[in-house]
Write a protein that binds this DNA or RNA. Sequence first.
DNA 1: CCTTATTTTTAACGTTCGTTCAATCTAAAA
DNA 2: TTTTAGATTGAACGAACGTTAAAAATAAGG
Lengths: 219, 219
Amino acid sequence: MIEKPKEKQRQRAPSQRSLATRERILDAAEQLFSEHGFDGASIRDIASKAGVQGALVNHHGGSKEDLFFTVVARRAGVLAEHRLAALEARKTEDEADLRGILSAFIGPFLELTTHSGPQWRAYGRLIAHVSADERWRPISEVCFDPTAQVFTSELSRVLPGASPRQIGAGFVFMVSAILSLSTSTWRIGDLSGSADTDDLMQTLLDYCEAGFRAIGSPG
Amino acid sequence: MIEKPKEKQRQRAPSQRSLATRERILDAAEQLFSEHGFDGASIRDIASKAGVQGALVNHHGGSKEDLFFTVVARRAGVLAEHRLAALEARKTEDEADLRGILSAFIGPFLELTTHSGPQWRAYGRLIAHVSADERWRPISEVCFDPTAQVFTSELSRVLPGASPRQIGAGFVFMVSAILSLSTSTWRIGDLSGSADTDDLMQTLLDYCEAGFRAIGSPG
DNA sequence: CCTTATTTTTAACGTTCGTTCAATCTAAAA
DNA sequence: TTTTAGATTGAACGAACGTTAAAAATAAGG
């Protein structure tokens, strides 16, 4: 499902039109997968939204599972770069304390998923699906675990009193809270405005920071 | 999808065998819905797991959406009763402080989903699906929102400094963290033992209590 | 026991699914 | 310009889907 080694090398550069078509297909898949999940979104729906024939989806994306992996992985690298860059920036400015670490993890995600257009917003919901369904654990391991390990080790550094299991639990709680902002915004209220989003990020940061401190300190 | 008013009254009591068959079907649906989601679980799979013919699933459960709602609603009342009873018990013992309220909400869920057999364990994952997919919002409103309102008003009482939006955000964060224990246990590590579950409940309680206090206090 | 409402099976309906294949169109490379 | 790899279309495949209808089996009620 993940490996894709068998691709006989191409003999011509892809045309600009085909590249654009491929992106349109991936965008359509991203939206429909995020709205209806893997099983709820059909190849035909994706093709229709992209304005192409169904067979073209298989041609550009391979099997449906290949397509799903491609869509998830497409933005995973960008997200990881933003997070790790934010972490490094905090480090060089001696702000790599608990709140700084959490900000470096939470900030880029909320920034991208709320201020970078509908595709990134859809990607937030898509990650929620990936994270909730054990079926996609291999995708998580490839796309998100490396970054997660960097941050958990940083958290262990600033919270020496917490066991690895406690760090892991707190990290899962934080991730689930972050993703809930992509899936359950209607539970809290309308936060389409940018100011509300920043407010909510502060609330989330306060919540997670205090939670980690409670975990990391005895008693 | 939710309403089910058209049932012409029956003229004979259902046999014990049919009642048992119905429960077997609901149990099978509960397990498969929780593992593969609504679209990923087929009527034929459910029938096969229940040991009956496919048509019998429709006969006992109605349409697939009706069946899903029935499965979710079946244990929702029991869960709500446990939570509200725990809350009342804390109130009469003057332990209805923040931690007492959170314990009354978290404790019964973890107790049921980890110590009451595989069906309740499946039910935990099932609720995670309901909570994550906006498609099932009507089900959430019927099955879970009444209890949620009781607890959020209690939280507002003990956290007068927090706005309704902050209370709502904290509640969503807490719910998502609770459900993550049903869906992402593999992220934290192997916690199949019962002792570990109790440890994790303490960690979750510490985390959420501190988070709520941070939200509820100025600064 | 007899009647028949209800349960259960068997079979099939029409639809949609993911995927494949051959034909056609497009455009990169020589 | 010519060649032809690659992009795109159109059509079809077999399989699985949710659902329905009519028999057959079962058991409740008289």
